[in-house]
Write a protein that binds this DNA or RNA. Structure first.
Lengths: 337, 337
DNA sequence: AAAAGCATTGTAAACGTTTGCGTAAAATGT
DNA sequence: ACATTTTACGCAAACGTTTACAATGCTTTT
């Protein structure tokens, strides 16, 4: 039904091999007059290359799979933008697959589709894989790289912010603004390395600045709006906290809105610094001061890494910085010392 | 290199055909003892099916392509969630392809990858295709359907809200709340049907309620935050407007923030109703009253449509409703009559 | 006990492309 | 004028599956 190179061959009066060479632009393997005939025939017949056949024989793909979890945060788009931007000039098609949130089965299926199609590389966007799926990933001989997530296993390649530093920097910033009672909320430090590291950085800063660590001020969550809300209502109206670090922009907004519900004003009564720094920080009022990550860059570096032959470096760190907006108040006087 | 069905056949002492049948679970075509042998061998060898080969011979795919434009709005996720939910039980893999914003070339490439892979169907998420790309889409014998966008061409299948009604309903709601000077902003009515229809609904409502139409109150845009901001600053501090319809949630937020910058309070000085009704409406303060669309449902209906054999119905309308939150003030007294 | 049906398996062709090899003609060198 | 290289192209195998058809041995029916 669909036209094949044989149809073109017949119409152009050449062999299928020649058609293939012309259409693949194998320079120097065909004459210009035949080339024209072939191309005209192809156009006339509305030829469409069959990717399956090509991939079957060449055993390689021009597709790059991105597996994202249906996350409640919203920076994925930025990373994907970066990936697209880097992939486009290299003529790579980016295909995006959703893995459920922490649904192992959906995750497995996503990895499987990527692997069975023998894509040229797999980028995993803030997805935590379980051991089975990791094996699956490894057993296929396809390069893969985690993005926006830290791994402890030194052999696993990943590109992300220095998460320990993220936690440290946020804390330090609040400290420098005069805050002494600093909480952290909405991060998952229970079974995810990224969260652990951030918490660790937070604690390191506390120690360095000789601030007391209060377990009640550390509130676990899943980076969602709701976990921000929840944390803030647990802290309560009369909290001693003057500054809170939020695991994500969404969590920060949850905190802020809940604070407001409690009759607390941001930043006058309570300061917030968000981790991520997406556009959400700017559309909300007051705008959120953030420790901003380089999401776009994670994307571009991700495809660079896949394209790079010698996969020696496994850990790549992208820059972070605090962007001052309006959600942190500078404390002076007795509050600060 | 990678293990094939033949390797399994050898190890299990059967033919490749049998292996194929077992692995594809063609019930009634193999004995249970051979089945076990085959499956064990497959597991031991770490067999992974080659999708290209399968698709080549069967000429069909279990993949469903979703083409989304890198939109500045944010409801795509909801539609995609719906698609995933409907596709999962049918064992369809959803692969998502980004087309640039209005970049015809990127669009072409996205369509091409989908078509060349002969996916079983294509869903286009609020993407407007040009004529060439439409031809491309049609010439492939693959069912496709537009989501979250209206089409005039009766032969093109699409699933979306009744856009004319969206505009009408938003206007009517504001009217019922006592507003008489109603503007509309951030929608693209210049070269997109969706926007045209909404504007038309708006005008119809004005006419029905005998309100005057003022060209200055109709502000074109692209549904973005920025276009909301811009519209509001053009309206200015001393606008006669009491109510504004925003093309999207993001646009609504842009309007709201800009209004605030001008010293106007929402909803006391100016009311806003957003079109879309995503979670953004709820995280912002005041929360945005919206004409909410059924995005999730568009997704599920989309895959239903693709799966449906007789593709007779080309136009499917999903429900809309206004969700009252906090951004619209009820006007009484002299303002309203 | 022959005929017919069924369950199970194998054989081989087909899907549409790429590419190593071979070859004829044309171009180049001597 | 002959040897050599280059250019342009065809032939045919290969990629890993699926599946129509045939073949085998059983079981059931009559």
């Amino acid at each position: 039904m669909a036209t094949t190179i044989k149809d073109i061959a017949k119409m152009a009066g050449v062999s299928a091999a020649t058609v293939s060479r012309v259409l693949a632009n194998k320079e120097g393997f065909f004459g210009s007059s035949t080339a024209k005939k072939v191309r005209e025939a192809a156009a006339k017949l509305g030829y469409r290359k069959n990717t399956s056949a090509t991939e079957l024989v060449t055993r390689k793909s021009h597709d790059l799979a991105v597996i994202v979890n249906a996350t409640k945060t919203n920076f994925s788009n930025h990373i994907i933008d970066g990936i697209q931007a880097a992939a486009f000039p290299k003529d790579l098609n980016v295909i995006i697959l959703y893995a459920g949130d922490f649904d192992a089965e959906r995750q497995r299926r996503a990895i499987n589709t990527a692997v069975n199609r023998s894509v040229m590389g797999i980028l995993l966007l803030s997805v935590e894989v379980n051991d089975d799926n990791l094996d699956l990933l490894k057993s296929a001989q396809i390069p893969f790289c985690f993005l926006s997530i830290s791994e402890t296993d030194e052999s696993l390649p990943f590109i992300t912010s220095d998460d320990e530093e993220v936690g440290y920097l946020a804390t330090k910033y609040l400290y420098q603004q005069g805050h002494r009672n600093i909480g952290i909320a909405g991060i998952n430090y229970k079974n995810a390395i990224t969260g652990e590291l951030r918490l660790h950085g937070y604690k390191r800063a506390l120690k360095e600045f000789k601030l007391q660590e209060n377990p009640d001020w550390i509130s676990a969550g899943d980076y969602s709006y709701e976990s921000g809300e929840l944390a803030m209502s647990t802290y309560g109206r009369n909290t001693k906290l003057t500054g809170i670090i939020a695991g994500s922009d969404m969590a920060a907004i949850g905190i802020m809105n809940q604070a407001r519900s409690l009759g607390l004003s941001v930043p006058d009564d309570i300061s917030i610094v968000a981790i991520d720094g997406t556009e959400l920080c700017e559309i909300v009022q007051p705008q959120l001061t953030s420790v901003s990550q380089s999401f776009y860059e994670m994307g571009t570096l991700g495809v660079d890494w896949l394209l790079n032959k010698d996969k020696k470096v496994t850990k790549t760190i992208t820059p972070i910085k605090v962007i001052e907006r309006q959600s942190v108040k500078r404390l002076t006087g007795k509050n600060s010392f």
